[in-house]
Design a protein around this nucleic acid. Structure first.
Lengths: 161, 161
DNA sequence: GAGGTTCTACTCGGATAGTTAGTGTCCGAGTCGCCATGG
DNA sequence: CCATGGCGACTCGGACACTAACTATCCGAGTAGAACCTC
């Protein structure tokens, strides 16, 4: 059971984008340079986050990614499942109904107790991540962090003239 | 994040072995036929369970696997981590200290808050599985299940003469 | 008939190939901003 | 000087190779049991 490495990338990128002024964007290349990551592969993950509604993408010059919802409405679970998928790690293949010792159907009216317990644990994991929002994360950062992030990463909308 | 298919095998094999009389063993080939699984690969997983102390192995004729401890002292977590390893699914690679936006060391005195939250969720998952023992599972099975399992799978110690 | 010995067959255990999912990369479609041009 | 049209560059989006882990398999070391032989 191993989460993709990109999970960490997604969490940090979302946290950084949450620190920018509303209306401000950062391109995939900017974020890649900011964290020292492969740009193309990071872009792939940001696309997944966009499909999930966590981020919103704008094309063209001065375009890039920004948060798709308010930080208080984005949970860590949504970010993790956007890049890793929503399927449960334990998949019951009903081996109790296979082989020489296959149980009769009458014994399988209820779901396999082992699968239930594994699903319960997974739900506990999900609930734990779903209880933490990006707003909660921002509260834990040093007060000077947003200003620093904006300086190094932020890029405001067209402000010429 | 995906658990190996062998996780289900391990859980069901341990549950079945827990239903046998004490002193009774079942070989890897027996269990493989009982569940309709590839024998050699299943044996590899049973070896892992043996290394973890969940099972105990006996070689030679009439040998095989049996529970290494009392069912009440074996938790689902021990079985799962025996086959999947104990490493956490989320591995923090400290990308906050890499790239253009690398944070200074003074900001990294505490562990990354995101890594903490991910670790918390993993611990919740582990605690959930560690709270369920094989004895708990046996209590949930139909009363007639152990007799059936013993009949189809069990193979008592030498009873010749 | 009893004991010892040998032998066989069965067990686990680790080392060796094949296949799927994650990782990394590339190129193309679309869009916004800038610049030159004309009024 | 201002409005407009065209152009260019930058952006995301999806399609194509490469690597690591899980899956599957084989053969070898060790041991308990049984058969056999001897006394």
């Amino acid at each position: 059971m191993k989460l993709p490495v990109a999970t960490e990338w997604a969490l940090h990128c979302a946290t950084s984008l949450a620190q920018l002024e509303v209306g401000t964007t950062a391109s995939a290349a900017d974020l890649a340079e900011y964290f020292g990551l492969p740009a193309a592969y990071l872009a792939k993950q940001l696309q997944a986050l966009t499909r999930a509604g966590v981020l919103a993408a704008t094309t063209g010059p001065r375009g890039g990614f920004r948060l798709g919802r308010a930080p208080a409405d984005i949970t860590l679970l949504q970010i993790v499942e956007a890049v890793d998928g929503t399927s449960a790690p334990y998949e019951c293949r009903e081996i109790r109904q296979q082989g020489r010792g296959a149980l009769p159907d009458s014994w399988c009216r209820h779901e396999c107790i082992l699968a239930v317990k594994m699903a319960d644990a997974h739900q506990a994991w999900r609930a734990n991540l779903d209880a933490v929002t990006l707003a909660d994360i921002l509260d834990e950062l040093p007060p000077t962090a947003p200003a620093r992030t904006r300086k190094l990463l932020g890029r405001g909308p067209s402000q010429a003239h």
